[in-house]
């Protein structure tokens, strides 16, 4: 897994199966995040302004279901891309098999909790009650 090109990024793993698919997914999700994450960050900073964000800002945004879908897509792509990237780093740095399995398990549990918490609030947040 430590096969790497100059300047970041792995060479495409040979054959078929999980690793070449993960490799392709990193590029696909990268293109998606180029839109979703970069726009989100720059919009929050330069269109809204961090000082102007509060509870009511989110109530306003999430009263439009399209923003909830947007945030959900951002959540899913950023977490799956980020955690697969974290897996690459773990495989480079944690070399003892038992320990590697343990560190990976912790990472996967953390990823699962984060995606659950993120999806839960997007789909249960009730602007009527707010």
């Amino acid at each position: 897994m430590s096969e790497r090109s100059e300047g970041g990024g792995h060479d495409r793993p040979a054959g078929s199966g999980f690793e070449p698919r993960a490799w392709f997914f990193m590029r696909l999700s990268g293109v998606v995040l180029l839109g979703l994450a970069v726009f989100h960050l720059y919009w929050m900073h330069f269109a809204i302004g961090v000082d102007n964000i509060d509870f009511q800002t989110v109530v306003g945004r999430w009263s439009n279901p399209l923003w909830r879908i947007y945030d959900f897509a951002l959540l899913v792509f950023a977490l799956s891309h980020g955690f697969n990237g974290l897996r690459y780093a773990i495989e480079d740095y944690v070399r003892r098999p038992g320990r590697r399995r343990m560190v990976k398990s912790i990472a996967y549990v953390a990823g699962f909790l984060l995606i659950s918490a993120g999806a839960y609030i997007i789909f249960t947040f009730d602007i009527g009650a707010a």
Partner: peptide, 25 residues
Amino acid sequence: WLLHRATGLGVLMFLALHIVNIFLL
């Protein structure tokens, strides 16, 4: 390569805190 890895992991760390923060809604 190093910057790509460090920024990727750094943004992931921010994202984890960010999701907990938004969960507090």
